[in-house]
Design a protein around this nucleic acid. Structure first.
Lengths: 163, 163
DNA sequence: TATCACGCAACTTATATAGTTACATGAAGC
DNA sequence: GCTTCATGTAACTATATAAGTTGCGTGATA
């Protein structure tokens, strides 16, 4: 994950699971898809398991699976579970013992704008499920990757790699 | 500036200038108001000068002044001039030579949500001028600071201070 | 000409995120 | 039972960004 953020990793990997929910994916597999480290994948997906969106199993044949059908998982749930708001928690930090009516008024106006924007984002994500995204995928080949075979990592682990 | 951000510093200092546009303020004065360093103030206000919102003058009696009446400065202008978007530039960074239709679809959905939210914020700020904020200030004393004397720094430079 | 204040570059520090390593736990297969 | 596989978690390192700081140059005023 090269300065990418939790949300993009989550959407990317959950998207793959939604498109083919039958088999579980290992952290290693998902990490290779996204170009990051397996531990990072576990760190990001952990909260989604806690939120009841994913299941994880250890041992042979283990890995990550959707806990529910893709139709029943909205982007907003994912967004909330990750607790990584897009909106910079604008930092009006009035110095302690240093009250200022002007600063307070500015902070209020900014907070109002951010609250509005947050609501817009939440509404947008709440209206979209993982299945919606998967359904809207372009047909095979039009983006250089087949829909069922995107990020074909496990298919070709690079012949020169010792793995 | 304790992890505060450029925007809060800008709004705070411009708010003071809007409330009393007659005299210029030095970087040092503004820095003391906001609890930061004069150089930081210059760094933040510089782009506002470039945007035609502020004027700065050197030498005796110099400092920062509004380039226009407070009625003619919207918060949106300030927001844009600072180039510090509230919305985390969500980083879907598809690895080069690693196209993935799923990732692309997710990125598109997120981008749409962020674009909507940006518009909401811009509209909110565009509807408010510095004068609007100043006008809405509570009467003296209700917040522990008089409207014309908020952040009373220059008034009492602390008797024990050699400044 | 001395002082004041901005302009700017460079350096230091602080913080957050990502990446990595190491080890423990639990499940499946032999 | 033992080995292998996979997650769970803690701890450490590396890197990027923002803030804070120092120093020096420039222009304007007294």
């Amino acid at each position: 994950m090269k300065q990418t953020g939790k949300f993009s990793l989550a959407l990317h990997t959950l998207g793959h699971m939604a498109l083919d929910p039958t088999r579980p994916r290992t952290s290693e597999e998902l990490a290779a898809m996204h170009g990051t480290h397996p531990v990072v994948v576990r760190r990001v997906l952990g909260p989604l398991r806690a939120a009841g969106i994913l299941l994880s199993e250890k041992g042979h044949g283990g890995g990550w699976r959707l806990a529910r059908p893709a139709e029943a998982v909205t982007l907003e749930e994912i967004y909330r579970a990750l607790d990584e708001p897009f909106l910079t928690p604008i930092a009006f930090a009035p110095a302690p013992g240093h009250p200022c009516a002007i600063e307070a008024a500015m902070a209020g106006t900014v907070a109002a704008a951010l609250t509005e924007a947050e609501a817009v984002i939440a509404r947008h994500f709440a209206a979209r499920s993982l299945a919606d995204i998967a359904r809207a995928l372009p047909p095979a080949g039009s983006t250089g990757a087949a829909p069922g075979q995107n990020c074909q990592v496990s298919a070709s682990p690079a012949p020169d790699s010792p793995l």
